[in-house]
Design a protein around this nucleic acid. Structure first.
Lengths: 357, 357
DNA sequence: GTGAAAGCGCTAACAA
DNA sequence: TTGTTAGCGCTTTCAC
């Protein structure tokens, strides 16, 4: 098309109306006569108008406020990483007058989430990024967003029924398959592998089952009787009971590897194995949390799958900001690659963590 | 500090001067009396002034033009991916009146690079992103940038002596180590591993030696006589000769794996192994190029290390734009994580390739 | 319904 | 050496 920058003023002149009218047509605000509407639309079709977003934001009063809702980062290292992403996004967008607030709830306390939700109902932000841990309780929350036209993006855990603007996370089924493949790689012989779910019992558990299924399917497809899997749930047990269950598990001489479905579980079992001096058991777990990094460096953990919580959060805010500020639609779902961390590439990931935009 | 937005006008009033003078102090342009300078600086110290970048870009005439200089993407799949990153950056910044051009040279033709350089000398862009393939010949080019105050960022290949604004790439030595670790993982027994350099002979070869060293060091540190490595250079040979060398290599019964130091080499050797029906040889190579993806899907390639050329280019432009437009300093070096691709996580990487910002 | 005009905060040209 | 002012392109108010 024409390469020259077209302004609203140009359109107005071409259509023989005023800039005010063109603006009314462009944003369908205010009344416009059919005649004027027609003229403006015609010229609009002939040329390629792209609004100057810089000018728009400078002129328009509205300063956007985004809110990120996630579990309290001070209580959990995984969510602490997510929060780093939020903080980075905060400074990233401050230059554009886009404010990013955060609201934390207790991962194990439904009421704390409801409080946060109430806060939102009152303050009415322009966009929401949320890690929807409590399945049932977040559904009405999403209804609220929908009716009030507040765009919301999910991260970490997907709830497709909520029909968010976008979801950012990983394919958990494939994640389980990758874990199985890695296990298979380092334990090619006959073996039993354990899958351990160690999180507190909440709706999130549903999602962990997808990882479990992926892990099992991988070995089922091998159609090899040499491989068997066993699933263990360590939810809502005392520490003593947990350790007892682990001891029983380890007494099985066929056991060659353990797959942990959560990042916190990963470090717990790694510590346990270290205490028991069981270097023969291969460990595949999740995420570059402080403890996990140490366990990987000293060889207790063989592989970590990185969920990249920080980047998930960063992109979540970026998507919201682009949507509101540049009216640029985010992808419906962004499934992050399943990053494999080993002893040798660990360092490269740690270094990149502090840098990458 | 104070939370209210402070404008230049406010500073002017506080200091008892005009906005013109404040502007002159802020940008040290034009003459200012010592007295005025002092007054402005004093108030500047007391308050926390952050310029409104939106207003600045709207008002200021200067439209930035960035140029990305890289090997012709139509001749090489790896550089085609880099170019995708450039194109993405182009649309990303078009909303801010930052123009991104690209200039291609022939990877194997020094003259073509000189032509591109000449073009740059004439058009004088505001920032340069470059993949410096020809070592010696690019040094004077960087001199030119320095004397003309054109910020430049290197990607893919580092030349620290050039003192770029930033370097974006990978740690090649660590990359070799990761390759060795992966080889070791799938071939734990006694073995000989080959390292093959297959690129045309140019300065780039120096960098490939770092990968080689990393690979060798990994096994040397094992202090295990079961492992030995052999290096092969397939540079400037006819196809017949290359195949001949490969045949000789494969006739060694000890040979259990091959490490390819470049992405193009990876697909060539994979094809060769397929023709020879040598499924027993493990292959570790580079990058998610079309052919490599196919070879990995059918099992010929065991591991790929992803250099993420697309993201390297995208970030390169982003760093330049942030530097110029938001005066935000990029990191001196951004070493990407060494991403390990396997059969199981390949799909997740392919899907993410088209989406991730 | 419509057009004119006053900003948004900053830059840059101009006059004093 | 300084202050004033006219934009940048868009939004929004306010008369008509």
């Amino acid at each position: 098309m024409s390469n020259k920058k077209i302004r609203i003023k140009d359109i107005a002149e071409l259509a023989g109306v005023s800039v005010g009218t063109v603006d009314r047509v462009l944003h369908s605000r205010g009344k416009v006569s059919d005649e004027a509407l027609q003229k403006v639309q015609e010229t609009l079709e002939q040329i390629n108008y792209k609004p100057n977003l810089i000018a728009r934001t400078l002129s328009s009063r509205n300063k956007y406020r985004l809110v990120a809702i996630l579990p309290d980062p001070s209580l959990d290292d995984y969510w602490a990483q997510s929060n780093l992403g939020i903080e980075q996004a905060e400074t990233e967008w401050s230059a554009f007058d886009i404010q990013v607030d955060s609201a934390f709830f207790d991962l194990y306390n439904l009421d704390s989430f409801k409080q946060v939700a109430n806060e939102i109902y009152k303050t009415m932000p322009d966009g929401i990024l949320i890690a929807p841990i409590f399945y049932k309780e977040t559904l009405p929350f999403f209804e609220f967003c929908k009716t009030n036209n507040i765009p919301f993006i999910l991260f970490n855990t997907n709830i497709p029924e909520a029909k968010p603007l976008s979801f950012i996370g990983q394919n958990l089924y494939e994640s389980g398959r990758v874990a199985a493949e890695l296990m298979h790689l380092v334990q090619p012989g006959p073996a039993t592998f354990a899958i351990i779910h160690s999180k507190e019992d909440n709706d999130n558990a549903v999602h962990l089952l997808q990882k479990e299924k992926g892990f099992k399917d991988y070995f089922l497809e091998k159609k090899d009787k040499d491989y068997s899997t066993v699933t263990i749930k360590l939810t809502s047990l005392t520490k003593a009971k947990i350790d007892n269950r682990l001891e029983i598990l380890l007494s099985n001489p066929q056991l060659k590897g353990i797959f942990l479905s959560t990042s916190s579980g990963t470090s717990y079992v790694a510590s346990f194995l270290e205490r028991q001096k069981r270097k023969d058991i291969k460990l595949v777990g999740y995420d570059l949390l402080k403890e996990n990094i140490l366990h990987m460096q000293n060889g207790t953990i063989d592989f970590l799958i990185n969920q990249n919580p920080r980047r998930q959060a960063l992109l979540g805010i970026r998507y919201l900001a682009n949507h509101l500020f540049l009216q640029k639609a985010p992808p419906a779902t962004n499934l992050f690659p399943l990053e494999i961390i080993t002893q040798q590439n660990l360092k490269s990931y740690l270094e990149a963590m502090n840098i990458n935009f």
